[in-house]
Design a protein around this nucleic acid. Sequence first.
DNA 1: ATGGTGGCACCGCCA
Length: 280
Amino acid sequence: MRLKVTTWNVNSVRLRMSLVARFVAEHRPDVLCLQETKVEDGKFPLGEVRRLGFGHVAYNGQKGYHGVAIFSQLPFDQIEKRDFCAKGDARHIAVRFAPEAGAAAGAVVHNLYIPAGGDIPDPSQNPKFAHKLAFLAELDGWFRGGFPHSQDRAILVGDLNIAPLEHDVWSHRQLLDVVSHTPVETEAMRRVMANGGWIDVMRRFVPETEKLFTWWSYRAADWTKGNRGRRLDHVWASPAIAPMARSIEVLREARGWDRPSDHVPVTAIFELGAARAHAI
DNA sequence: ATGGTGGCACCGCCA
């Protein structure tokens, strides 16, 4: 069974619904994880999402800011929304696929929107950067110890707002002091991955020596000029499911669509084998 | 070297 999972920071799901529809029509993901939906749950465009063919929808939103959602063709039997840093921010949602989801049954998908962290890369001067580091520390604490069962299948996607590797940014040297690529963040991210046992699926398909970006700033007259991008969006997998990954696609062309998000969709395809259920 | 754009809520905040 093929499982196609896409992560996309849409920067307002209501404003971008026609682009979401276009993406779904052209790429048909089984699971679409969105970040920055920017809509409170009571105003979530559930009808439009169902019309796109997703029978199973989970969302965690708030008014104006943040917000995450998972659209799925496969049923789930558990939904979790974790309130990182006890701030009441809508930055996480996870689902576990139900027994009826075939070979995906029991697999868990986490959808995360890590704080951007403001402009000044100093937690003592910038509370937003302090929040980002606290969020990463909590994430590390949560996943520390990895996966209790060797068969636990978990996928973590989202806008993690960190470009961890040298070639995840257009200029490593020029971005070392820029929030998203500072050593304190990239090291914190490496700790989360190492302590949790997560595998960077995108880099299993694109060598670390090759530039790989998922985001290009709005603050440029021409986003293609100089290709000044960053890899802020990620697909991670537990050891039980990482070997089942078959491909990664970064849809760069979506940055050139009419009224685009500043992030583009990232899609992973997994070829799933036998199932085993576990708790989120 | 600085400021650049975009979204939402509301005339500022966050990215």
